[in-house]
Amino acid sequence: MSMEATRRRLTEKQADTVDKLTRAAMEVLSREGFAGLTVRMVAAAAGVGTATAYTYFSSKEHLVAEMFWRRLSATPPPETMETDPTVRVIAVLRQTAMLVADEPALAGAVTSALLGTDPDVAHLRLRIGSEIRKRLLDALGADADPDIVETLESLYSGALVRAGMGYASYAEIADQLEKSARLVLPN
């Protein structure tokens, strides 16, 4: 499945190159960790030139942030017939928190990457944040209190930074998010 890249519209061939690069990045990340990851290594693993890789990704942080964005946007929001907004919000928070739980190298890299100063990362942070906000708003319903949405976003962001720093597993963070959401949301 080809997906539009964050920097520009792509032809099918270019989209295939970006797909190759993001797949190769996961392989290199698993082997080298975020500290050892370079765009040059990823390009070599993908079988493309380094200059070509830099055409699409301005930095390793941009590449990893793109990997997370692709994972998030390819994952549909949790489907539930539940009428209780609290249960729907918890499902959104849990799903998003567990998105990279099975890949510790990617999970830690995402935290580092999203905290970067690269303008392309900043753009992706906005896209990721907007998608999470949309999912929370959909879960809360039409009369969502903006202060509650903002609080839930802060809870989520802080929880994922804690998980990325290794203070807790992603499963523990998902459980903590549930407890926190129950404290924040009206009964």
Results as ranks from 00 to 15, higher is better:
V92W: 13
R88I: 07
S59P: 07
E82G: 05
L114V: 11
E172T: 15
P78N: 05
S180H: 06
R133W: 03
A15L: 08
D84E: 15
L99K: 00
L10M: 06
R133Y: 00
L160C: 11
L29T: 03
I132P: 07
V149A: 07
A107L: 15
E61M: 03
D138K: 08
A24P: 08
R40Q: 10
A44S: 09
D102Y: 01
L21S: 04
I132E: 10
T86C: 12
Q176M: 08
G116P: 01
A5E: 05
G33A: 00
D145E: 13
T86V: 15
L137I: 12
V42L: 05
T11L: 02
T117C: 04
A101E: 13
S73I: 06
F68G: 02
I132C: 04
E4K: 10
H62M: 12
A25V: 02
T55A: 13
R31C: 01
E131P: 03
L21P: 07
A91Q: 14
F68N: 06
G49H: 10
I132W: 03
A45W: 04
A51Y: 07
L63P: 13
A46F: 09
P186K: 08
L99F: 00
E103A: 12
M3H: 11
V39T: 15
R23F: 05
P186Q: 05
A91F: 12
R71H: 07
A97L: 11
M26Y: 05
E32Q: 14
R94N: 11
E153Q: 15
R133K: 14
L72H: 05
L93A: 11
L140Y: 10
E131Y: 05
